[in-house]
Structure formats: structure tokens, C-alpha cells
Simulated assay, not measured.
Amino acid sequence: MQGAGAQAQTVYRVVGADGKVTFTDRPANQGAQASADTAGSASAAGSSANAQLPYELRQIANRYPVLLYSAKDCQPCEEARSFLRGRGIPFGERTVESNADIAALKKLSGQDSLPFATIGNQHLKGFGEDSWNQYLNAAGYPARSQLPASYRAPAPRPLTTAAPAAPAEPAKAAERQSAPAAGTLPPGTPTPSNPAGLRF
């Protein structure tokens, strides 16, 4: 009997970085695959949070990323956020708080009202559950949540970042510090009012 001495063999399902599925008797190099998945999702979606997603959902999220633009004390924004969470849509969020944020939103959407969202290149102005469902369905997002229990959405970020205060020009600051007090210059020294240093 040949089957009596045979041992059960474990078969591993391995998904490559290119999405190809192979079956093998050796486990995949978990560290290398995880880092490849993370690098791919970060470059495509700008967020390592997508690395936690099941493969098919990650592909959709990378191809048609969802981004919600919201503000504090905005009830429709809260409804839109709850809707996306309830349906299990992985999404990023940008908050609109400053005048620079409002200007950037107006440039992006052509208006300054919220909520505003993008699904890939598609713009959604205002929140309507039916229309948002249609666009999400068209993009291929599942009707029911497939988010793993360990999934953590990225924290909301401001739409624009405040520019740091420009430092004083170092040359002018040094010039002011090293300039001697008026009336103490030696004769013939060039000054702003006498650049050639002429003596009379």
C-alpha cells in the first residue's frame, strides 16, 4: 500500500507582488512579501494603511482611492464619514480649517462647500447616499465591508500645511550686526550713502 506511508503535505497559497497566485510546498517569505505589499500600496495610494487590506480590496483602493474633505461641526460631513465607515470603505480624510485650506478646496473642487469627496478622479460634491453608492459600486468596491478587524484608518490631516515663517535674510542680519555705529567709520569706508567711499 503506497498511501499508508505517505504523510499529509501542507500546500501554501502565495500571492506575489504582481498579484499572481501560486501554490507551493514552501511558505512565502513573510517579511519580504509584507514589505513589497507595503511599498506597493504606499506608492499607489500614499498610505501604508492599505497594506492591511485583502488583496482585491487593496487593488481597488489603489486604483480608485477615496478621499473625504470635511470640517468640524459639519453634520453632512459626519454623515458621509459614517456612511463610508459603515460600508467598509478604506478612505483618507483631509480637514478644511484655515483660509489656505478653503482656497485649496475651491481650486480643487470649484466650490467651498463641504462635504466633498474624490473616488479616483471622480468628484462628489455634497453627500447623497444613493449617488455615493453608485460611484463606489462602479469603482468596484464591495457592497459589504471586507475590512479586517485589525484595520486602522489613517488619521485625518489638514488639507494644506502651514508654511514655516521665513527666516530673516542672513546676509542682511549679519550686515546689521557687524555695522559700526554711525560716525565711527574710518575715513574712506564705503557706506550706503557713499558707496565709493569718497572723502571730501
Rank of each mutant, 00 (worst) to 15 (best):
S47C: 03
T22G: 12
G19F: 05
Q75G: 11
Q122A: 11
A117S: 12
A168H: 03
P170C: 02
T191Y: 01
G120Q: 01
T161A: 05
L159G: 01
P90I: 09
N50W: 09
G3L: 15
R152I: 12
A171N: 13
L68I: 05
S98M: 14
F127N: 01
R94Q: 12
P115G: 00
A49L: 00
P170H: 03
N29F: 08
C74H: 02
E79H: 07
P27Q: 05
E175A: 15
D73Q: 13
S82F: 11
F127E: 02
G3M: 14
V15K: 10
L68M: 08
V21I: 14
G19E: 07
P90K: 08
G46M: 13
F91H: 01
C77L: 03
K20A: 14
K72S: 15
A117C: 05
A8N: 09
Y55M: 09
A6G: 12
Y12E: 11
K106A: 14
D25W: 15
S48E: 05
L57F: 01
L105A: 01
I89K: 02
P180Q: 12
G5I: 12
A182R: 06
A17D: 10
A103D: 12
S131Y: 08
T160Q: 08
L108V: 10
P115C: 04
P76A: 11
R58D: 11
R144S: 14
S131K: 13
S48H: 08
N133E: 06
L185I: 00
Y135L: 00
N50R: 11
G188Q: 06
P65V: 07
P54S: 10
L185F: 05
A153H: 11
A182P: 10
A44K: 14
A165E: 13
P154Y: 00
P186C: 03
N133C: 04
P90Y: 00
A45I: 06
S47D: 05
D37L: 11
L114M: 05
K107I: 01
Y69M: 01
A4H: 15
Q52G: 00
G126T: 04
A32P: 00
A168N: 07
Q9I: 15
N194V: 02
R152G: 02
A45V: 05
A17F: 13
P27K: 06
G5V: 12
Q134T: 12
A4K: 06
F23I: 10
S70W: 00
P65E: 08
A34Q: 08
A173D: 07
S82M: 13
A166T: 15
N99Y: 03
R144I: 08
P148D: 06
L198A: 09
S48I: 11
G31V: 13
E78L: 14
A138W: 02
T38I: 11
S47I: 00
G197A: 02
D101S: 08
R144K: 13
A143E: 02
N29I: 06
G126E: 07
A173I: 09
G92R: 04
S98R: 07
Y64F: 10
A80K: 03
K107C: 09
S113Y: 10
H123P: 09
P156G: 04
W132R: 01
A104V: 08
L67Q: 12
E93A: 09
G16L: 15
I60N: 00
A179K: 06
D130E: 15
Y12T: 09
N62Y: 13
P156T: 09
D73C: 06
P170Q: 00
P164A: 15
R85N: 13
Q177P: 01
A196Q: 04
N29A: 06
I60E: 04
Q134G: 07
